[in-house]
């Protein structure tokens, strides 16, 4: 797994934001610019992949409310009939 793939969406997005800021501030060498550009493009792709592939994970605290007792929540059938489409954009 490359270093990039271990980044969370938040980390990748924040770094991307910062790269764009640096690039737009200008005054970078050509080498720096190209390095930033390549890194930024990879980050953007990573962000998009994260957004496209994410699935909401849901767990539930046991009725006893022990913080450690977590169980996966089965999706109720109603979600299947959800009219709100999860638009892949």
């Amino acid at each position: 797994m490359s270093e990039l793939e271990t980044l969370s969406f938040e980390q990748a997005f924040t770094e991307l934001e910062e790269l764009v800021r640096q690039l737009e501030a200008g005054d970078l060498s050509l080498d720096q610019t190209l390095a930033l550009y390549e890194r930024g493009m990879a980050l953007a792709a990573h962000c998009n992949a994260k957004l496209d592939m994410a699935e909401l994970r849901i767990r539930q605290l046991a009725p006893g409310l022990e913080p450690t007792a977590l169980g996966d929540v089965p999706e109720p059938d109603t979600f299947e009939q959800d009219t709100e489409p999860d638009t892949p954009f």
Partner: peptide, 18 residues
Amino acid sequence: IQNVLRRRYPLAEVILAP
């Protein structure tokens, strides 16, 4: 709540405390 979270930001984990 689940629907909104799933639609807007499925990157998160959700813990229900009933």
